[in-house]
Amino acid sequence: MTMGKFLVRRILQGVFVIWGVITVMFGLRAVSPGDPATLMLGEGATQELIEHVREQEGLNEPIYVQYFDYLQGMIVGDFGYSWRSNREVEAMVIERVPATIELAVAATIVAIVIAIPLGVISATRRNESADYGATLFSLLGISTPNFWLGLMLILVLAVWAGIFPNGRRPVGFGQAIMTLVQYGSVYDLLVWLQYITLPALTLGTYFTALITRLTRSGMVDELGKEYVTASQAKGLPSVLVRYKHVLRNTMIPIITVLGLQLGTLLGGAVITETVFNWPGLGLRLVDALGARDWPLMQGIIVFIAIAFVTINIVVDALYNYLNPQVREE
């Protein structure tokens, strides 16, 4: 199968997945209790005003007509208006995307910096205390709920020790970089780093444990192959063999998981953003749930689905390019 056919097939599969998410979200809104017009206007609205809004929003149309109108709007990028703030949903989603991307990328960097060296040490020192410690760390990381870890980090490092700040960040990454470029000041960047450290550690813990186990498993498999023995017999230093050859051959599945998990982090940051009051999509989704703001909820979830599918396609294409055997299969 050529790369072009592979991409066309994956894009069609992605479109089908996104359509399924849109359909499920519309179905949930349709079967949820409560009149949308009443939710938009509040309990004190008159019946005449409620009927006017129902007619204006097309809520008195048959359900299939409402579905096709909604689907058509999604196709052209019209996500509707928030029932709570009467703002365009796409604008409310886009303005929160940078903060969520910042947190997801920071958590990924934390995971890479900690997990890969830990996995290499665990693989090269099997059945030793370092291996047992890495295994225990992985088990704790996978088992620990994010919300509990976030609360403990706030309590210990922010409240008791006072090392890190507690509260909503006063400056974003983009603003910090602009300040650095325009005025040569690193103050805003340091403030941003202080505020993102605890959320990134919280969100990246599970990811760190997963990559550690994956790195260890891949390294163990590679260390048992003949080319490693041949390289060592030629007198190559163990460090060179370990990091230049063995780790390099282990990176293909790790890169794949990194890409897939980045998409997962975009959607899985809801709890972390809520705990740390991080102004991203997750916190906005929780607010929309509390207000039963269905257009905003639908817009956020559909956007996350699109981002997740896009990242999956890019990672599959990269893996397909690096490993042509996948394309042949």
Rank of each mutant, 00 (worst) to 15 (best):
Q56Y: 14
Q72A: 15
K234C: 11
R125F: 05
N86Y: 15
L203P: 01
L157Q: 04
R125E: 04
M40K: 14
T100I: 01
R292H: 02
K5W: 13
F207W: 12
S32L: 10
V191D: 02
Y64I: 11
G162R: 13
R327D: 08
W278Q: 00
R213D: 02
A288M: 00
L49E: 15
G299C: 01
A107F: 11
P36R: 06
E90Q: 12
E226D: 15
A209R: 00
Q298P: 00
F6S: 06
W83A: 10
T274R: 06
G4A: 15
L193C: 13
L59V: 09
V159R: 10
V181S: 13
L59T: 01
T229S: 13
L265W: 02
Q13G: 13
Q72E: 10
R10W: 05
R242T: 14
M219G: 03
Y64P: 07
D78K: 06
D78Y: 10
V191P: 00
I121F: 08
E273R: 00
I22V: 15
Q72L: 13
R9N: 14
A291E: 10
A111I: 03
Y243C: 04
Y243L: 15
S129Q: 12
R168L: 12
A106H: 04
D69S: 12
S217A: 15
V53T: 09
S143H: 04
S122L: 07
E57K: 09
L71F: 15
R29C: 15
F6P: 07
L283Y: 08
L139H: 05
M251G: 00
R213T: 03
Y206D: 05
L136S: 10
A317T: 11
E90D: 15
P145A: 09
E102C: 08
G141Y: 03
M152V: 11
V246H: 03
R216V: 05
V93R: 03
T264N: 07
V228Q: 04
N86G: 09
I311F: 01
P295T: 03
L285F: 05
M297F: 01
S185Y: 08
Y206S: 08
T272F: 01
T23C: 13
V286F: 02
I255Q: 00
E329V: 10
G282D: 04
V191Q: 02
T272M: 07
I196M: 12
L296N: 00
L203S: 03
E61W: 07
V15P: 08
G263L: 05
L39C: 04
T250F: 05
A107E: 04
E51K: 11
E61I: 06
A106F: 05
I109Y: 06
I306S: 01
M178E: 14
I116N: 01
T46M: 06
V21L: 08
I11Y: 06
A134Q: 00
L266Q: 05
G172E: 11
F303H: 04
E128V: 07
M1T: 11
G141Q: 05
V186W: 13
G44F: 14
I112G: 02
E222C: 12
I177A: 13
L265M: 10
G150A: 10
P117Y: 08
L281F: 01
Y227S: 06
L322T: 09
Q298V: 05
G119Q: 04
G141T: 02
Y321W: 14
W278P: 00
P33C: 07
D287T: 07
A291K: 06
G77N: 09
T197W: 07
E222Y: 12
V65Y: 10
I94K: 11
T229Q: 13
M152A: 12
